[in-house]
Amino acid sequence: MGFALTDVHKNYRRRGSSVAALDGVSLSIAAGEFVAVVGPSGCGKSTLLQIVGGLLAPSSGSVSFRGDDLYARRSADDRAAVRRANMGFVFQTFNLVPYLSAMENVQLPMAITGLTEAVQSERASALLTRMGLGDRLDHRPGELSIGQQQRVALARTLANEPTVILADEPTGNLDPETGSAILDMLASIHSEGRTVVMVTHDPQAARRAKRTLRLDRGRIMSDERVG
């Protein structure tokens, strides 16, 4: 069992009036699925991803992960622990720590978890090599190309061996060729049995997923499965 959302609403206050980002979303995502969430800007894609990732509490409705409610009677630190153990985030802007090397950036989630330095080094080195950055371990983000930075971010996402990858526009800042390489890697990660939920407005990227959820004005307009 992966995620289950039941009648999830999320309202924001904007200049005194309420804006619905999610309007009664109900869905379930099974473990091991590769789901693309598509839709126009402001339709609630990123909000959905943040709610699923335990970063943003819904205004109403329930969100469960592996059968446990993520928000009811759970503190932000409890949800951080769930994320730490099970989830990895990929961001459009990579969000690498600029003063750390590629190696250290990948070690960061493991440092948060408290893994030993030997395990951190071994795993970070292996992941970066897998991403084709074995010769860039000591380079800082500023010394890497945009595509390389996203690959470091992807390696960091896998550091704690999460079962779920949540990617927010992972190819949004990349050229088509580099974007395609990142999508290949996400597909490879999915093939290892991990759940991948990817928010994108790129139809090419969405086609790589096995399931596409189309959102508009906070509602699921379609839910298509491939194959």
């Binding site: 932000a76 951080a80 622990a81 730490r84 153990a85 985030f89 969000n95 948060i112 704690n160």
Partner: peptide, 16 residues
């Protein structure tokens, strides 16, 4: 702020 938000997304607790 961005670095802090990233740490939190990666699972860092508020105390960390």
């Amino acid at each position: 702020r961005r670095e802090i938000a990233t740490l939190m997304a990666l699972g860092a607790s508020r105390w960390q």
